[in-house]
Design a protein around this nucleic acid. Structure first.
Lengths: 220, 220
DNA sequence: ATGACAATCGCACGTTCGTGGTATATTCGA
DNA sequence: TCGAATATACCACGAACGTGCGATTGTCAT
């Protein structure tokens, strides 16, 4: 164990989860014909892989399809990441809709490949994951940045003044009017007035409404 | 204009914004020695580039440094995107901290390269951007996915029951207890009790606090 | 079948909020 | 220099909230 010759040989264990038999065999063969990699397990479902995790050491990389029968790949990612956080999960799927991509990456996937990727790309992606990268198909990378740019609406601040924004921030922390007044060395009445003005500008009439709007429209 | 021979020749205009003279010259030369690309302008600051945009047609791609004197690259991205939404902005910088990466991509950058990228990679990235991709250095891609996985804490739901989560959702919409009761065909007292229990579980004691927590911890 | 939990309903009391007013000082651009 | 906007402050009253006590019903696993 001390003389770890696995690392010297760079013989990495890779698991494959893919319900399509043909594709499973193809990828399996591809990996096993690559020096330094070994596909030690190939499953049809996440459930099988998870039960195997109880008895075997986790692999360095799991190649995972998303559209699986039974447990969906997204749920699978979360499970795997719980059972073996250091295992890299590389998505290999036909799905490229924003929702799936977003969910998979949020769940902790280390990369996302589309199934039209060439064998070279797939092997390259595994290597990239092993060296700390985050391989993505071109389309996926594009989608990822798209998601980012939609992440910050940051549009109109409804004409809130600086003071009003400041008070809004305090509101969000859950303070009462009196507590906000104390924090800012103001009179209760002043804070009260500011709140009234904020409500008008945000078209709400409760603290709750103001807070919800603040979060949804990135006013804070 | 109809016989658009620019596209046939694939002669793409590229602008460069970079305050380091040496680097600017290097990249400039690199681009101009690549068939199909032309670095038609090289600036030291975003301000210069923006004023040029008033009189010249925007380029297909802008290579942009982030650590600039005057207007920061992030602000620059927003300005460029406003003036010419179709122009791709490719970040080329030494900065790789999460904050900068996140802000740049949210602002609308189409790619993010680190300055230690090889000339090949830089040219390749420009080509990738032009063909609808989103090139990123390996480290950046990794950070991007890291940001994603931190995006959804989605951890403990504080043991809220289904009913409590449902009521929490209504709370977020700004309804009063009585209104929530009406919506769910419940007594005011029932809703009141649920709120009390929610407060205990979330460790808050106001609607505002519950809503804030709901947003911050993705309970909704 | 017994206990734990969830969901429902009730009352009372003090606190906080939302809203209708009014009013003054300061700042700042037209 | 003269409004307009902003920040500040005050009062009063009904509505809504937060919290202390209850209680009954059903489910579900031990």
């Amino acid at each position: 164990m001390n003389q770890n010759n696995e690392l010297d040989k760079e013989n990495f264990n890779i698991w494959l989860i893919e319900d399509n038999l043909h594709f499973r065999r193809t990828i399996n063969g591809l990996i096993n014909h690559t020096p330094g990699m070994k596909c030690t397990n190939a499953f049809e479902t996440c459930e099988e892989a998870i039960s195997k995790l109880q008895t075997e050491f986790p692999p360095e990389v799991i190649l995972l399809d998303i559209g699986l029968p039974g447990m969906t790949g997204i749920e699978g990612i979360e499970k795997f990441k719980m059972l073996s956080p250091s295992t890299h999960i590389l998505i290999l799927t036909i799905y490229d809709d924003n929702e799936k991509v977003f969910d998979a990456l949020c769940a902790g996937a280390s990369g996302y490949l589309l199934k039209d990727s060439s064998p070279d790309k797939i092997i390259g992606a595994i290597e990239e994951v092993l060296s700390g990268g985050a391989p993505m198909s071109m389309q996926i990378a594009h989608k990822v940045l798209e998601i980012f740019s939609n992440l910050k609406p940051k549009k109109n601040d409804y004409g809130l003044t600086d003071r009003e924004k400041e008070i809004l921030k305090f509101m969000v922390t859950g303070l009462t009017k009196q507590q906000i007044a104390d924090q800012l060395y103001l009179s209760f009445h002043t804070v009260n007035t500011h709140l009234k003005n904020i409500y008008v500008k945000l078209h709400v009439n409760t603290k709750s409404g103001a807070i919800t709007k603040a979060f949804k429209e990135n006013l804070i």
